[in-house]
Design a protein around this nucleic acid. Structure first.
Length: 437
RNA sequence: GGAAGGGUGGCAGAGUGGUUGAAUGCACCGGUCUUGAAAACCGGCGAUGGGUGACCAUCCGUGGGUUCAAAUCCCACCCCUUCCGCCA
């Protein structure tokens, strides 16, 4: 029987041999594993698989015997009669086994990753653990405006135009604001490539379903995606994570190439189904936004050090822009489906008087790598071994723009431009309160 | 869009119905030789799944089909290369 397609996301061996341990780890994140059903199906699977393989073995050896007999000129007819019903029995057994394996696979696909022991327990974002705060929220001698009011007042942000062109949750930017947006992208890419050791990648913005399965967006989260009409089954990427991480899909990577550090700027497209009424104002939650994404493919033993480093690289962007932020560790209940551990970076937004997510940095351990069949060849044992994958926003560009508008606003409505961006703004040091044109 | 060729192990590349999971070369690992290295020579070397284990099963782009038996024959699809046309 063919066991080639392995869509399991947790290690199937551990799922069998350490079922109770895994169940209790999953319980930490509020996921109930039906152990009784799983072990019952597993027992059936084992029985059926052994039976099927025995039949296959019989067919193979008998076919070989027929081949030999024919070669030696003996009469084959009696041998053929012996195998008459073998095909039928084998086919029936295979069909049963396939059905059972499909059922087991569907269950396995719905099981999220195991949370890392260092995570705080919790059922919602309220239990997330704050690790640090950086920078001082600015004090204003006037009531600070939010980014929409600021942008509109400058005459550089036109959400109504975007609504006319497309619909809700899109935007148009003008003149220096559009340039500031572009400057942020250039600045981030330059920082990560020249100082943090990442290689810049340009990738497709449309991907196939297989890539989305590889990183875990499909089959569970199809509703969050934009799918193209037509005979091409393509999707708009919800994040650069999808094309970039899928670079190593099906590869056995030479160990000397590791760790791989890639940075890519792409637009991201999200349907935001199920978030009606949430963040409806402004640029916080859009169907289309830009992001600079950091991706690392690393040796398993290095992945937690890599998570710290990668998070630091994202933090560096905020620090260079002098934007106050805090770093939190997601609790077990707030953790994404594929992640084992996630740090969120939240930037200070004066108008909301709170910190808002601007980056999410995760270690997926071998969860994505297993679906991707992304492996390295161990230099000692010479055998292939799953790599670990990580990614993080470095940063979400739209939200960074929001943060700059709000944190750098002046009493007259002008926006100072952070020093780190000056080289990218052609000498412009502030966006004036009123721009004509 | 038209025409032709091709997808086989980490890579290159044989193989067109039967002890072929797959020749050969490269790479890689172990050994001999050498002061050491290189070269040469000898040996080893695919992946996935099942079984405590001897072993067994599956995999030659993907999915179907024919057959006692398929990398090899048939059908559909995907991808790549080259040439022509068109085009940002």
């Amino acid at each position: 029987m063919n066991n080639g397609t392995q869509l399991t996301m947790l290690d199937p061996k551990r799922l069998r041999s350490e079922l109770d341990t895994i169940a209790s780890q999953l319980a930490r994140r509020g996921y109930t594993l039906d152990c009784a059903r799983l072990s019952e199906l597993e027992e059936q699977r084992k029985r059926l698989q052994v039976a099927t393989q025995e039949l296959q073995n019989e067919r193979n050896s008998r076919s070989k015997a027929i081949g030999k007999a024919k070669a030696s000129g003996a009469d084959i007819q009696p041998l053929l009669a012996q195998v008459a019903d073998l095909g039928e029995r084998l086919k029936a057994a295979q069909e049963q086994l396939t059905a059972l394996q499909t059922e087991l696979e569907e269950i396995a696909l719905g099981i999220p990753n195991l949370p890392h022991p260092s995570l705080p327990d919790g059922s919602s974002e309220a239990e997330n653990r704050e690790e640090l705060r950086w920078g001082e929220p600015p004090h204003f001698a006037f009531p600070p405006l939010d980014h929409v009011d600021l942008g509109v007042r400058c005459g550089l942000l036109d959400l109504e135009a975007a609504a006319k062109l497309t619909g809700a949750r899109f935007t148009t930017l003008h003149g220096p604001l559009a340039r500031l947006h572009r400057a942020l992208i250039q600045f981030m890419l330059d920082l990560h490539t020249s100082e943090h050791g990442y290689t810049e990648l340009y990738v497709p913005y449309l991907v196939n379903a297989e890539s989305l399965r590889g990183t875990g967006q499909l089959p569970k989260f199809a509703a969050d995606l934009f799918k193209l009409q037509g005979e091409m089954e393509y999707y708009l990427i919800p994040t650069a994570e999808v094309p970039v991480t899928n670079m190593v899909r099906g590869e056995i990577i030479d160990d000397a190439r590791l760790p791989l550090r890639w940075v890519a700027h792409t637009p991201c497209f999200r349907s935001e189904a199920g978030s009606h009424g949430k963040d409806t104002r402004g640029l916080i939650r859009q169907h289309q936004f830009e992001k600079v994404e950091l991706v690392q493919i690393v040796r398993p033993e290095e992945s937690y050090a890599a998570l710290e480093a990668l998070t630091g690289h994202a933090e560096a962007v905020l620090q260079r822009l002098a934007l106050p932020y805090r770093k939190i560790t997601l609790c077990t209940g707030d953790l994404g489906f594929s992640a084992a551990k996630t740090y969120d970076l939240e930037v200070w937004l004066p108008a909301q008087n709170s910190y808002r997510e601007i980056s999410s940095c995760s270690n997926f351990e071998d969860f994505q790598a297993r679906r991707l069949q992304a492996r390295r060849r161990d230099p000692v044992s010479r055998t292939p071994e799953l790599v670990h994958t990580l990614n993080g926003s470095g940063l979400a560009v739209g939200r960074t723009l929001v943060a700059i508008l709000e944190n750098y606003q002046q009493a007259d409505g002008a926006i100072h431009i952070p020093e780190a961006l000056h080289p990218y703004m052609g000498g412009l040091t502030q966006i004036p309160a009123r721009v004509t044109g």
